[in-house]
Design a protein around this nucleic acid. Structure first.
Length: 554
RNA sequence: UGGGGUAUAGCCAAGUUGGUAAGGCAGCGGGUUUUGAUCCCGCCAUUCGUAGGUUCGAGUCCUGCUACCCCAGCCA
């Protein structure tokens, strides 16, 4: 596609440039560390493009690592979907995917080391007591009565914890740091908790699981990650990240840098809310084309290149942001405009009968697959006496701004003849069902010989050969730009986010299994949906064409 | 005066030793066009949250304000 050639620049790449120039690092290693507790979304794509993009551009490597320290929230189906999505986006992690759980043994050893150094202790306080002792944002915390337990006792207690002798919530392992720190994350954070849960990778081997803050930094160090990139909400956690690395016996010193997460207008990008949309059936699943998930965007017809281009265009900073949907749409339009072959489809059909065209005649016309790219070739389309046209492309009367078919006026049928409307049929309700017209046989491939100007062009589908099709038109999932700010974001769902139309597509599309996306001329970009059946094709509208007419109105 | 962060156009975002505000999206004019698309051409910040200060010169340095985001899970 038309991906921008220029290499992105951002503060993280500048830090890496300096680290390389100063010799702090000679090779760069990053990682993309999702928790397998949901499907990847466009926000993850930003992180993926950042991490894998840096690895590519600096000749380094990027690991895919599942941050799987909380088995009760995770599932193997998510790890599989995540692998698929990262690959689909066009990135490769080289070799096997990593798991934080690969390091559970080592992590446990480091925990023991901290206990031996007097830097960690087993706390038997209740969760509520721990919360109270933590203090508040403005008042310091207080020490736990278990804080000064001797090393030997702690070692034994941790061994018992590991052996399953304590119930969930009965105790936990805490780091001994500083209960008065202004960084609340440093007020003796929990390192391990008891969970009698089956883990998708380690099975029932463990009944204690390490916390994120203890796991992530060590996993980074064990993998030799040089630059650990995460989102802004982890800025405070960086102090704990560094504390852990400094207080255990490990060589590597990865550095954490934080960037702002993506916010997109008219959708939600938090896993909690996306899960809710799926489980409460507000959408048809993780790959519903209205979802901002990678799977949803893929089914909607977005290409990997368009998503990568989007990530390039939005950049990486530390500023809170809210990106307009138009930015994403511009990326897929730019891609499909050059790569999608054109075709014709009528979404809301009325019949056009050409009265001076023989009823038994039929002819094969040649149409360009792309008006600006001859290399995309041509195709044959059938034409006969009756064709479908778009209901909105005909009016009995209209002002001159309406460049379509009007009674007693002419219009060009795309790739075919100029026709003139002469009369209409209406149903009992007064809706136009059929437009009768006359065609000018001399206008195939050239303008009228007498020099009269026909300024309108409308698309059509041959009624004799056309194939029935269902068109799914999508609008924004929410009615407000920032649904997440709503008390009840579900109430802001756009009830008209999916509109289905039954119409016709040109015959050639039924057999075409190769083409990934088309531009239905004058309508928009569409892709074939997996719901397509032999008797009815199903198309998802990826995005409409830019439409200045719609803005002007009439 | 808890701490950590961020403020450049409607949106995203360059701007790195202080030297006179990139680019993209959107928008607005005009041209081409058998898609009201595409493409092409032009316009779109005397000003960088705000008030002062230093300087020949400040988006960049200093000081004071203001606004917004994050942190009190045995979630990540």
């Amino acid at each position: 596609m038309a991906e921008t050639e220029i290499r992105p620049t951002n503060f993280i790449r500048q830090i890496i440039d300096k680290d390389l120039a100063s010799g702090v690092h000679s090779a760069i290693k990053t990682r993309f560390p999702p928790e397998p507790n949901g499907f990847l979304h466009i926000g993850h794509a930003k992180s993926i493009c950042l991490n894998f993009g840096i690895a590519e551009d600096f000749g380094g490597t990027c690991n895919l690592r599942f941050d799987d320290t909380n088995p009760v929230k995770e599932d193997i189906t998510y790890v599989n979907s995540i692998k698929e999505d990262v690959h689909w986006l066009g990135f490769d992690w080289g070799g096997e995917a990593k798991y934080s759980s690969d390091y559970f043994d080592k992590l446990h050893g480091f925990a023991v080391e901290l206990i031996e150094k007097g830097l960690a202790y087993v706390d038997f306080s209740t969760q509520e007591q721990i919360r109270e002792m933590r203090g508040t944002l403005k008042t310091p915390g207080t020490n736990s009565p278990y804080r000064d337990t001797d090393v030997k006792t702690n070692l034994a207690a941790f061994a018992d914890m590991t052996a399953g002798k304590y119930k969930e919530g009965e105790c936990c392992l805490r780091a001994k740091i500083d209960m008065t720190s202004s960084f609340i994350v440093m007020r003796d954070p929990v390192l391990y908790r008891v969970k009698f849960a089956h883990h998708h990778q380690t099975g029932d081997k463990w009944c204690i699981y390490p916390m994120y803050d203890f796991t992530h930094c060590i996993s980074d160090a064990l993998e030799g990650i040089t630059h650990s990139l995460c989102t802004l909400e982890f800025q405070d956690n960086r102090r704990l990240y560094d504390w852990v690395i400094e207080n255990i016996s490990i060589d590597c010193q990865p550095r954490q840098y934080e960037f702002s997460r993506l916010n997109l207008e008219y959708t939600v990008l938090s896993k909690r809310r996306l899960i809710q949309l799926v489980t409460e059936n507000h959408v048809d699943g993780w790959d519903d084309p209205r979802m901002p998930t990678i799977a949803g965007l893929r089914r909607r017809g977005y290409t990997p290149g368009s998503i990568r281009e989007f990530c390039k265009r939005i950049g990486v900073t530390k500023m809170d942001n809210m990106v307009e949907m138009g930015m994403l749409e511009a990326c897929i339009r730019d891609d499909l405009n050059v790569n999608a072959p054109r075709a014709m489809a009528v979404l809301e059909p009325i019949k056009l009968v050409i009265e001076n065209y023989p009823a038994d005649k039929s002819e094969t016309l040649i149409a360009l697959n792309h008006p600006n790219d001859e290399s995309m070739g041509t195709r044959e389309i059938e034409f006969s006496r009756e064709v479908w046209i778009e209901a909105e492309d005909f009016r009995e009367t209209a002002n001159k701004k309406f460049k379509r078919l009007v009674l007693d006026k002419e219009v060009r049928l795309r790739n075919a003849y100029v026709v003139k409307a002469v009369r209409v049929d209406k149903d009992d309700a007064g809706n136009i069902t059929t437009v009768y017209c006359e065609y000018d046989p001399e206008t195939l491939g050239n303008d009228p010989a007498d020099g009269r100007k026909v300024k309108g062009v409308i698309h059509w589908v041959d009624a004799k050969s056309g194939t029935p099709a269902e068109f799914r038109l999508y609008d924004r999932l929410f009615n407000v730009p920032n649904p997440a700010a709503q008390d009840d974001f579900v109430s802001a769902i756009n009830s008209a986010s999916l509109v289905t139309k039954k119409g016709w597509a040109e015959a050639g599309l039924a057999a075409d299994r190769e083409t990934h996306a088309w531009q239905f001329e004058r309508t928009g970009y569409f892709c074939r949906d997996k719901d397509s059946r032999d008797d009815t094709l199903v198309f998802n509208q990826t995005v409409g064409l830019r439409d200045t007419w719609a803005k002007i109105g009439d």
